[in-house]
């Protein structure tokens, strides 16, 4: 990939996170829907998470506007994800 192609790909991902993630459907996903309908959703609510995450539910803390908070968490996550994928790939290249 050329440099500008990498930037294009990353920019596309960041734009999806920036502009589309705040307008994602708030409805429960397939598994949540089934858990609710079949009466086992409370099993997840009974347990506390084993580790506490810095940005639970894709919301950047301390922001009043939830859409902006989601957007920001999404962009940061997308950029971090590029770093993780790139980093893992580089480590694997070194070992090959």
């Amino acid at each position: 990939m050329k440099r500008k192609e990498i930037i294009f790909g990353l920019l596309l991902a960041a734009l999806v996170a920036l502009f589309l993630s705040p307008f994602a459907s708030p409805w429960p996903d397939g598994l949540e829907r089934v858990a609710e309908d079949k009466g086992f959703l409370q099993k997840a609510e009974e347990v506390k998470p084993v580790v506490s995450s810095p940005l639970p539910d894709y919301v950047f803390p301390g922001l009043k506007n939830e859409k902006v908070a989601t957007s920001l968490a999404g962009v940061l996550g997308t950029l971090a994800m590029f770093g993780v994928g790139y980093g893992v790939a580089r480590l694997l290249k070194k070992r090959s």
Binding site: M1, I6, G9, L10, L12, A13, A14, V16, A17, L20, S21, A24, S25, P26, W27, D29, Y58, T70, G74, G77, T78, L79, M81, F82, G83, V84, G85, Y86, V88, A89, R90, K93
Partner: peptide, 18 residues
């Protein structure tokens, strides 16, 4: 290497869009 980075980023972003 860059393709793995871009795919990670794109799939993460796309998974946010229900």
């Amino acid at each position: 290497i860059p393709l793995m980075g871009v795919m990670s980023a794109f799939i993460f972003a796309a998974q946010m869009v229900n």
